[in-house]
């Protein structure tokens, strides 16, 4: 039986608790599921945190995972969305030798065309930032690589859903209606 596999963005609203990251990641570990990216941040509601986790799994598995996550005491609610149902971005930073910026005219063209920003320039290196979809940050990576990348880093996915998540309703609060 081969089930269709999809990329899901899981959004989890939680109380702020020290052990919670461990508890949530253990749910994936127990089921041998790879977490592709994970970010945590303050949410739109005071003292409530938000985890955004990206996984690629089957439709039936994602439903069961969401229920297991919601079962954790300090999880307020968890949602899963396909890429179509969310607006999401990642940010990448590229550190390149300053020398190439002056020697290779081409680099400036690349930066301009990819709508990336130069964040900082120093005598030895400069840093480019690009926020966008995975394909975009990857394309820029491919373009810059021939000039020698000193460092590269990409953030986890941040995303907001197209539909309202109604966390406030669950908590009886008054936001995101």
């Amino acid at each position: 039986m081969t089930e269709k596999i999809n990329t899901y963005t899981i959004s989890i609203y939680t109380e702020n608790n020290i052990g919670l990251l461990n508890r949530i990641s253990a749910i994936f570990l127990k089921r041998h599921i790879n977490i592709e990216s994970l970010t945590t941040s303050q949410s739109e509601i005071e003292n409530i945190f938000r985890f955004v986790i990206v996984v690629t799994i089957s439709d039936s598995k994602i439903k069961r995972i969401i229920k297991q996550i919601e079962k954790q005491i300090e999880v307020i609610a968890a949602f899963s969305h396909t890429d179509k149902e969310t607006i999401f971005l990642e940010t990448a930073l590229y550190k390149v030798k300053s020398k190439s910026l002056f020697d290779e005219k081409h680099i400036q063209k690349i930066i301009k065309e990819s709508q990336a920003n130069i964040v900082t320039v120093s005598p030895n290196y400069f840093v480019i930032e690009k926020t966008g979809w995975r394909e975009e940050t990857e394309k820029l990576y491919d373009s810059l690589e021939p000039y020698g990348l000193l460092q590269f880093v990409r953030s986890g996915r941040i995303s907001v859903s197209k539909e309202a998540m109604n966390i406030s309703n669950i908590l009886g609060l008054n936001t995101d209606k």
């Binding site: 020290i18 052990g19 508890r23 253990a26 127990k30 005491i73 300090e74």
Partner: peptide, 14 residues
């Protein structure tokens, strides 16, 4: 023990 017991407790806290 919090780390160890996390997957086998309904809740735990230090």
């Amino acid at each position: 023990i919090i780390g160890i017991s996390t997957p086998v407790t309904k809740w735990n806290c230090q």
